[in-house]
């Protein structure tokens, strides 16, 4: 145990540094930065649903900079074509052949801004690349760089002229997060912080890519006890027969919940998952994977409230051999 602990300690300092870096730029959003790291370490992607101007871009840039990763931003518009993001082959007249010009997708950390503004064709190109970690153009498969982390944003207010993401595609995001407005105190310190230069310009990488890869490897080694797995499965299966839910979460949901829990446990300096990890992450992992019945929506229920309701009901296993029923 002591050996394990020492190893985690070494990562602990780096993880702390990353979070500190992000906090340097984004005031008071430690939870969101942590959750973003969870998604990154678990190899997943994040859907940020929020109004403009709360610092989504800044946070993604801060993560990218702290990890020394290449950051690309794609502003989705209705006329954006798939090739505009993946890249395109251009005929080189000098060399008389087609030459691949990589698009903005060919980066480590991608901010896909207002993803619901673009056509489903372009959306699916993005989501496919997220899942496959590669793009195929003109019969050539181009492997995307590693790590590949997409943070897509959606504006929950404006729906005119948007193409809402279908259920199947929402499923591809590991977590769905909400930034929310800062508190007045936090906003005060934001103003003081930004009065001269933007701090993002001074941010230095604190983790190397190699270390990041190591960490990702370690995350997969975090132990998940059978009782915890049962708890996850119990939660997810309950979404499938809840009275307010029209469509429950898929097995991909269980998998996502487990992977995210592993990453969270790792960040929390543990080599095993506890039910608290699961309970904490469940709203972020499950809400975008379930569809409410219309009548439930009319009654004022939301995906969040239903998931919270489930969490308040599913018994937590606290004993070996005891399985949640």
């Amino acid at each position: 145990m002591s050996v394990n602990k020492a190893r985690y300690d070494s990562y602990r300092s780096e993880l702390d540094a990353v979070i500190k870096n992000i906090e340097h730029v984004i005031v008071g959003k430690k939870q969101i930065s942590e959750l973003s790291l969870v998604a990154l370490l678990a190899g997943g992607h994040v859907l940020l649903e929020d109004v403009p101007g709360v610092g989504k871009t800044m946070m993604v840039r801060a993560i990218a900079k702290s990890l020394g990763l290449q950051f690309n931003r794609i502003q989705f518009t209705p006329d954006l074509l798939p090739s505009d993001i993946t890249g395109v082959s251009i005929f080189n007249q000098k060399e008389m052949n087609f030459e691949f010009r990589p698009g903005p997708l060919m980066g480590n950390v991608i901010l896909a801004d207002e993803i619901n503004r673009t056509s489903p064709k372009t959306q699916s190109a993005l989501l496919e690349s997220m899942e496959e970690k590669s793009v195929t153009i003109d019969g050539h498969t181009h492997i995307l760089p590693n790590p590949f982390f997409v943070m897509a944003t959606q504006n929950p207010i404006e729906y005119e002229g948007t193409y809402p993401l279908p259920e199947a595609q929402l499923d591809r995001f590991l977590l769905k997060l909400n930034m929310g407005y800062p508190t007045p105190d936090e906003e005060m310190s934001i103003l003081s912080l930004m009065i001269h230069d933007h701090p993002i310009d001074t941010l230095k990488p604190v983790v190397t890519n190699v270390q990041l890869q190591e960490m990702k490897q370690k995350v997969t080694e975090v132990y998940v006890d059978d009782t915890v797995k049962k708890y996850i499965i119990d939660l997810v299966t309950r979404t499938r027969n809840h009275r307010s839910i029209y469509l429950g979460a898929s097995p991909r949901g269980s998998l996502a919940l487990m992977k995210a829990s592993q990453a969270l446990a790792f960040i929390m300096d543990r080599d095993f998952v506890v039910p608290d990890d699961v309970k904490y992450l469940a709203p972020y992992v499950l809400t975008h994977r379930i569809l409410l019945k219309p009548e439930a929506r009319f009654e004022g229920e939301s995906a969040e409230s239903v998931v919270m309701d489930l969490l308040n009901r599913v018994p937590v296993p606290i004993q070996k051999g005891q399985h949640a029923r």
Binding site: V274, P275, D276, K279, L311, N312, R313, V314, P315, V316, I318
Partner: peptide, 9 residues
């Protein structure tokens, strides 16, 4: 202890 409480809670 509510059965839905984790041990930490």
């Amino acid at each position: 202890r509510d059965p839905a409480f984790t041990l930490r809670e």
